[in-house]
Design a protein around this nucleic acid. Structure first.
Length: 454
DNA sequence: TTATATT
């Protein structure tokens, strides 16, 4: 009864709160099933929470701790209403954080002041985070601040921003060595404060040593962050990396497998054994599905948000641009990942594969490799071997009958004409010597040539 | 020059 009345008094009444049992709050949805929470049904055992209870976000949790391990730590501060470790929706992988709601608001406040950044759980190198979950507050209030002087401290940044509102958090982004990356996050109590800071400070000054004036803007949304990560990853491995093929073709299968293999996956990932491609694929399988894996064209990436257009991937629509055929060694890694551009030996078409002296300068998505390089090793070595660790019985991602020549004799060819098949490919290269095998990669869905092969 | 996570 108390709850029902309190709920109504608070103006929060909805259908749920007026349901037959009078319970105004229902914790979580499916998520709480695995968590620690009350068992509905027996009134005498139903824990009730304050109508103004605070849902806390707990961060920096070792991935080997689950709800029952965490419970004792937090019970010190009061009766727990709900405790849920966050897990990846597909892989089940522990995300290293949790949500915690106490029955009483006061318990949450006590826990926050006693624990937030006050201790570090075993195996973590940052202190535990205990603070109201994002869902508890509304609106964009976190700013990204760029073009700071690398010497500036959190206090310096606070001083710069405090005039515009109450700063809840201020963090300088630092590399592993502790050096500032010249940017920071500043979180205000409200959106209005954040906006005021943007209006007053963005572009207002240039810090010593910075290459342009101060940047003050709302921090990236999730979607933007994901896009950024994909771009970075794409740049690191190169969009022509043949390793992309198995993931593209078997993405759905891999995804299903990953659910079954969640535990193994998690431990492998924690151990750091997955290569970037595999880790990327595991983490971003969802997003990857929307991508055309050959990297030339991309499906429109959710142009739903009214915000800024996601940069990068969709921009260079190469297919309409005729490109010279390129021939490249299968190294399993993109050329730029090998450090120096590999042997600039023979270029069949005379076009240099890289922008002169500056392989890193160009947009990786626009780097159309064209040239001949030696095959550094067996096909698909790097990732195939390691993926096997995560997939004990990997699907036949690579045609087993595909023949591979001796080391140094295998070539990766791209920018093939659409109509090229295996035979044409072989024909083209026969004049240069005995061809053991030729294979043009074909999109399984469309049966269209992907315009590259080996 | 966008982090260690936010059902």
């Amino acid at each position: 009864m108390y709850i029902k009345m309190a709920t109504l008094a608070n103006g929060q009444a909805d259908n749920a709160s007026l349901s037959t049992n009078g319970l105004g709050s229902s914790p979580g949805s499916a998520g709480h099933m695995n968590g620690l929470s009350h068992s509905p049904g027996n009134p005498s055992t139903i824990p009730m929470k304050d109508h103004d209870a605070i849902k806390l976000f707990i961060g920096q949790i070792p991935r080997n701790l689950d709800e029952k391990d965490l419970k004792p730590l937090f019970e010190e501060f009061g009766k727990i209403y709900e405790l849920t470790v966050l897990k990846d929706r597909f892989t089940g992988m522990h995300k290293g954080c949790a949500f915690l709601t106490y029955c009483e608001r006061e318990s949450a406040l006590k826990a926050q002041s006693a624990l937030h950044e006050q201790k570090t759980l075993p195996g973590m190198n940052r202190p535990i985070q205990v603070k109201p979950a994002d869902s508890e507050s509304r609106g964009d209030r976190k700013l990204f601040v760029g073009m700071l002087n690398k010497q500036q401290s959190e206090d310096d940044v606070r001083r710069l921003f405090e005039a515009f509102g109450n700063i809840e958090e201020c963090t300088i982004l630092r590399g592993p060595d502790g050096n500032s990356k010249g940017c920071a996050f500043v979180k205000y109590s409200s959106h209005a404060e954040a906006q005021a800071a943007i209006n007053a400070l963005h572009g207002s000054q240039t810090m010593p040593g910075a290459s342009s004036s101060l940047v003050v803007k709302f921090a990236d949304t999730d979607k933007e962050r994901t896009m950024r990560r994909m771009q970075q990853m794409a740049g690191q491995m190169g969009m022509f990396n043949p390793m992309a093929i198995p993931f593209g073709a078997y993405g759905a299968y891999a995804q299903a497998l990953m659910q079954q293999q969640a535990a193994l996956m998690a431990s492998v990932a924690q151990g750091g054994y997955l290569n970037p491609m595999a880790a990327f694929a595991a983490a971003q399988m969802q997003q990857m599905a929307a991508l055309n894996m050959n990297g030339l064209a991309a499906a429109p990436m959710t142009p739903t948000s009214g915000g800024s257009t996601p940069p990068g991937i969709t921009a260079p629509a190469v297919p309409s641009i005729p490109s010279p055929i390129g021939v490249n060694g299968f190294t399993g890694l993109p050329p730029q990942a090998n450090g120096q551009p590999a042997a600039e030996a023979v270029f069949a078409n005379g076009i240099h594969p890289y922008p002169a002296q500056s392989p890193t300068a160009a947009d990786p998505l626009q780097q159309a490799y064209a040239g001949v390089q030696q095959y550094a090793g067996p096909a698909y070595p790097a990732a195939y071997g390691q993926i096997s660790q995560a997939f004990p019985q990997p699907p036949p991602m690579i045609p087993q009958q595909q023949r591979e020549g001796p080391e140094g004799c295998n070539l990766f060819i791209y920018h093939l004409p659409q109509e090229f098949g295996d035979a044409e490919l072989m024909q083209m290269f026969l004049p240069f010597g005995n061809v053991i095998s030729s294979k043009v990669f074909v999109d399984r869905a469309t049966n269209q040539s992907k315009c590259f092969g080996g």
